[in-house]
Every structure is written in C-alpha cells, then in structure tokens.
Design a protein around this nucleic acid. Structure first.
Lengths: 328, 328
DNA sequence: GTGAAAGCGCTAACAT
DNA sequence: ATGTTAGCGCTTTCAC
C-alpha cells in the first residue's frame, strides 16, 4: 500500500522488482520479451507500489497523443447542445478513462471544413471521432490519424464508419404503418446536408414507390419545434394524411403536440412514429412507436475502434428495431 | 501556412523567431519576462508555423496532468447512463478542448469511496469534478488536487461546490401549488443518500410546515419508472392528494403516466410538477410545469473553475426558476 | 532580458 | 532475455 507521497514511477517499480527500467517497461506495456520470473516480479512491484503509468510521458515519447477528439460538423456551435452528441462524448469518455485518455469535443463549421485541420494539427489528439460527417470532411483527416479515426455516420475508403442502420429501422416503421392500413404516409426528414439521414428517406421512398404510393416529404431538423411546424405543413399540403413518420422522437413529439392542438387524434386519425427510442418515449401520451437507436453502444464501439486501432470493417451497422407502442 | 508534415515544435518557433527556446517558451506560456520585440517575433513565428504546444510534453514537465476526471458516485455503474452525467461530461469536454485537455468519466461505488483514490493517484488527472458527492468522498480528494477539484452538489471546506439552487426551485414550485389552491401536496423525493437532493425535500417540508400542512413523502430515484410506482403509492396512502411534486421531470412524467392510467385528471384532479425543464417538458401532454436546471451552465462553470484554478467562493448556486406550463 | 542546461517519466533502438 | 543509451517537447532554475 503506497503510504502517501509522490506516485510511483517506472523507476521505482524497476528498482523494487530488481530489474532495469526497460524490462519493467516491456512487461508493463506488454511489448517485447521478458522472462516469466521478471514478469512476475514486475507485476508484484506494480501493485505493491500502486503504480500507474504516466499518460503524459507515454504520449510524449510515443507521439500518440493524449485525448480523443469528437468533432461535430454543423451549421452552428449549437450542434454541441445536443443529447446525441452528449451521449457520444460521454460514452467515449467512459471507454477512454481506463486507458488514461481523455475526450474533447469541438464544433466544425459546415462551411469551413478546413477548420478541422487546425484541430487535428494538435499533437495531443490521439484519435478522432467524426459526427454528422460530410464527405469533404472525411478527406481532410490527416495521414497521422489514419487508422485512428472513425466516423459515426458516413465513412470513406480511409475512414471506417460505425452507424445505426436507419434505413432498416425506417423500413420496419413504414412497413408497420402499411400493415396497419395506413396508405397516405408523410415523412418529416432530417436536414438535407446530413448525408447519413438520407438512408431513412430512401427507405421511406423505396417502400412507398414499391407500394405504388406517393411520397409526402417535409424537411425537419430533429427538433420538436420543427416537428410542430412540419405537422402544420403536412396538414396544409395533404389534409388526408393518415400517418407521419418523424426522423426522431423529438420530431414525433412535436408533431403529436401540434396535431393534438388541432384536435387531431393520434393514432386514431393520424399515426405518428419517431426514431431513437429515447427513455421518455415510453412515458409520453400516447407512448411512442419508434425504432431503437443504441447511441451509447455506437459511441462505445467507435471509441474502441479508435483506441485499439486494429483493422476494422469499413462499415459497421448497428441494427435498429421497431418498438411498437401506442402512437402508431 | 504550414505546408504539410510534422507539426511545429517550440524549437522551430524559437529558430524562426531568432530567439532561444527559453524565450519562446516564456512568451508563449505567458510566464516570465520578455522584451516587446522578442514577444512580437515569437508571436509572428507562432502563427506563421501554426504552432500548437504539445499538451503531453507540457503536462510531463509541469506535472499538471492531461485530463479532467469526472467522478460520479452511485450504487452501480449505471449512474453513468444518465443524461445528467452526459451533459456534465460533454460540457466539461467543450471547455477543456481549447486548453488541450480531455475529459474522462468514471464511476465511484458508493460503498467503496476509497476507489476514488485509485483514480486520483493517476498523475494524468489534471483536475476533478465530483458528481453526486457524499461527504466521505470529499475528504478523499488528495492534496495534489486541492484547488483543482470542484463538486457539483455538496462541497466542503476544501472543495468548492457549484450547484443548482434546488431549494429555491422547489420553494417556487410548492408556493405555486399552494397559490393555486392545492393543500394536500405529496412529494416524490430523490434517493436518501444523495445529500444535495435534501435541499429540495427540506424546502418542501419547510413550506408545508409553515402552512400547517402535513407532508406526504415517497422515496424516488429520478427515474420515470420510480415515478410511476411512487404515484401508485401516493394514491394508496393518501387518496385525497391534490398535487404531486416530482424530484425530476422524468419522475413527474412517470407520475403523470400512472395517474392517467388510473383515470386521474392532470392537473384537474391532481397537479404534477417536475424539476429540470428538460427540452421535452414543453412537448409532453400536458406540458410540464417545472423548475429550470441549467446543467450545462453548471458543468461549464465547474470545468472553468478547475481549469483556471483561481480562488472561488466555497459555494456557487445557480438559480432555478419556476416554469409554468399546464401540468400544475 | 535572455540563453544554457537539466530534467519530467517513459519507450525504443541498440547492444550485450 | 535484459540492460544501456538516447531522446520525445517542453518548462524552469540559474548564470550571464
């Protein structure tokens, strides 16, 4: 038990283990050779002294950097005020903690993607998680960070992506709507620039086309406020709509709020669906029919990919499952 | 414009500025003396080269650490799966980013507070933000981190606290209820061990006592599920209840869900209030009457205190304002 | 006011 | 298999 004082250094460990620093370093870092005896003695010394490698020193010599950067693209820095981003950052921070790494989050202006370069020029950046990416951004990832970058959203040849299968989730939702007899189905989409939300829209279009049904699209932005406005627009343009697919749970909640204010019954007159399955989705009235979106698991996977920097598939899709509740 | 390659080091800056490393270091770190001319030349060199100090090297020599640790106390690691924690971590990460620092988050078991010591023994920890603290934890903060620790919740002589004025918020809520004619007011509290939630309960008790009204308390845990169960319990124990104060918005939503399932009108039969003013509070049906809780601002303040490590008041309370909507 | 020199704690050749 | 030797990039006495 360390009595008090200065945390133990590698030197202390080596000394008490009766080996050289190099040997101690090898067994601790798990790199290079070491005899079983040496290994054992070092191990003992380590937890006798309560030794914890100094992340800064390690990063300095290896040039590995000391924090994971979560770079979020968007039109304003307000993109950072988002529960989705919070979850990604927090999830990554959780994975990083045991590795002696931290997480930082910064906004990358959509119209000035090269701002990303300033961020990644910093030697302290050990890895990069891109959120809400667009292609120009992907191409700006510096060679130094190759293999240590992952995108939550669309990827590229050089940047693997980890994402939700929103196409599949939307597919399940629209099928459910269709199966329940809905035929005049509208959709409140995400912002057009956000490439990864296109898959949802495409799933919606594909299904309706196959069914010989016309599409009814209104642009949204994931927020409840836009959901409200979108609902009004849908009602105005297509008064006979019998279902509205929201791009997010917040959107759906906004839609429902607006509909109710207009005296429209949900799901009686119009069925409404969300996407995300936020914790509150089961508590609202009516409880939301939606599709799951395991953001936390995705963030964890993304951070893990960056930390372990071992080869990964270009694209990992987390399944999205239909969650049937009362709103549709 | 740096053309490509290896990021500039302090040596590069010194060389192009025609001064010694020491001088360059002084002007960049803003420490020590330097002639205006030297200062100027270094400045120029810095942005000519796009120089960014290497956080790891800096941390190594100064022993300052390289990441902020958010330590969250709780009964299980599930405390980390919480929107509140997410916001704190994300907010802190945002503040840290420009300083070349990262954020890590870890759980501290409530029954093994000394686990905190293992975390803070790490030289990489530049500062500490305690969340959901209890007194034993406060006393475990090592001297090394004095002045670089802040608690979101209760504090101590050695650890300043930054927190929400939940006493004030609850006060406003209960007064509002009373003013609307409610007299049989129940409360769903937070977990008893969580000291900082006591202030809410005390405000509730104080007001009711002053009004000569009996208290009706049920233990909750901030979750909607507990809110549901608590609502049932309230109804069973005090069937004539006409208002329920929830310790959080999620709690209130759970309460409302349960009440509605039982055919109870909200706010007609029973008024229900939350606490937090989450984004969805205005979208639910009925829209939630609640008290604001600027978690993000609090997290930002906490991280700032830690980073700037300048003397701060022992206790900073962020005001909580009543937000009147439809549920009460 | 400025520079020379000595590390911070660790890893990675390079011997041995 | 293990030890010796250089640094990684920066800050900071300590002389000048």
């Amino acid at each position: 038990m360390t009595t008090a004082r200065r945390p133990a250094t590698l030197d202390d460990v080596a000394r008490t283990a009766g080996v050289s620093r190099s040997t101690a370093s090898r067994v601790i870092a798990g790199t290079g050779f070491a005899s079983p005896i040496a290994r054992e003695r070092v191990r003992t010394a380590v937890d006798l002294l309560g030794y914890r490698p100094n992340a800064a020193a390690r990063a300095l010599v290896r040039g590995g950097g000391v924090r994971l950067l979560v770079a979020v693209a968007g039109t304003s820095s307000a993109v950072l005020d988002d529960n989705y981003v919070d979850q990604v950052v927090s999830g990554a921070a959780r994975v990083c903690a045991p590795h002696g790494l931290g997480v930082a989050v910064q906004w990358v202006p959509l119209d000035t993607p090269r701002r990303l370069t300033e961020l990644t020029d910093d030697r302290g950046v050990a890895g990069l998680i891109l959120v809400n990416t667009i292609t120009p951004l992907l191409d700006l990832v510096p060679p130094r960070l190759r293999g240590r970058t992952v995108s939550i959203g669309i990827g590229s040849a050089a940047v693997p992506s980890v994402d939700i299968d929103n196409g599949g989730g939307t597919d399940a939702i629209v099928r459910h709507l269709y199966a329940s007899g809905r035929r005049r189905i509208a959709m409140v989409t995400g912002p057009p620039w956000l490439t990864c939300s296109h898959r949802s829209v495409e799933a919606y279009r594909g299904l309706l086309r196959d069914a010989g049904l016309p599409t009814r699209e209104v642009v949204g932005d994931f927020s409840a406020a836009r959901g409200r406005a979108a609902a009004r627009e849908v009602l105005r343009r297509w008064p006979d709509t019998d279902a509205i697919v929201g791009i997010s749970d917040a959107t759906a909640l906004g839609v429902i709020g607006r509909l109710r204010a207009d005296g429209v019954q949900v799901p009686g007159d119009i069925a409404v669906t969300g996407f995300d399955d936020i914790p509150l989705a089961s508590v609202t009235a009516p409880a939301l029919t939606t599709a799951s979106h395991p953001v936390r698991a995705i963030a964890t996977a993304a951070a893990t990919v960056v930390l372990e920097k071992r080869p990964v598939p270009t694209r990992t899709l987390f399944p999205s499952a239909l969650v049937r509740r009362d709103s549709a």
